[in-house]
Computed example of a mutant assay.
Amino acid sequence: MPRKRNTQRRMEIVNTAFRLFAEQGYNNVQMKDIADACDISKSLLQHYFPKKIVLLSTMLNELMLSAFIYGNEQLTALSPEQRTMIQMSFMLRMLDENPRIEHFIRDVFESPELTTEIVLVSLDWLEAIGVQGEAANIRYAMNFAVSGGMAVFFKRKILRASVELIAENIDQAFYLLLGEDRRKIDQIYLSTAKYNTDHYYQQFIAYLHEHATIDLRAEIKI
């Protein structure tokens, strides 16, 4: 029972911190602010999460894994390449349509340490679904494609770049660096077109609302 209470308390802290980070930005929220919002002492907060970056890393893992579980349960009949392309498209659209989540993710990508955390979580998923390649090569390709792609995404309005185009280029860069033929990549992307619709996207968001360990109702509209 104590372990269950500890797990519940940890997730209450994560949810509260997520709301504060989304509303105010990671750099503007201090550990004392989180403790006050949770109605606990700062020392108790640090018992669960010694540093703010540890709390954010935990939060990031929960968010990413929730999105990946969707693919593991709903897209199992598709190839690894199709699954990565569909999920990249869905995740960028989610950020585009929900400013609080974009605000939160922008803060993450401003930190090299947290960008690495995103890459590591993504690597575990790519390995689990069977993406082929040496681990070092996959990591390099992921770092290059995602870091560059997200830099463009955050400036998409200035550059007049569509979310769909950015997602496609992130996927193409990733698989080209792994040695895939461009024509094959284009064919795979075309095969995912039927999933890039409002119907499938809403299924994805509904799934996150139902299964995510972090309460996303206030940040992600459905």
Rank of each mutant, 00 (worst) to 15 (best):
L176M: 11
R83Y: 06
L177F: 10
I34S: 02
R83N: 07
F68Q: 13
G149K: 00
L123S: 02
I53C: 01
N72E: 15
V131P: 00
S111H: 01
H199R: 13
I129E: 04
A212T: 07
D96K: 14
M31V: 08
L78C: 04
D124L: 08
E180S: 10
A218Y: 09
T58Q: 12
Y200N: 14
S41A: 07
Q187S: 15
F204W: 02
L95K: 03
Y70E: 06
Y207Q: 05
K32L: 11
N98R: 00
Q74E: 15
L55S: 00
E134M: 09
L45K: 01
D215I: 06
N143V: 09
Q172A: 12
H103T: 12
L159Y: 14
D39S: 14
K194I: 09
R217N: 14
A22T: 05
A173I: 08
S57R: 12
A193K: 11
S79M: 07
M142D: 10
L126K: 07
C38G: 02
R83C: 05
V163N: 08
A161Y: 08
I205V: 15
Q8M: 12
N61C: 11
F104K: 00
L75H: 03
L120K: 11
P2E: 13
D39G: 12
S57E: 15
A151L: 13
T115C: 11
L20C: 03
E102D: 07
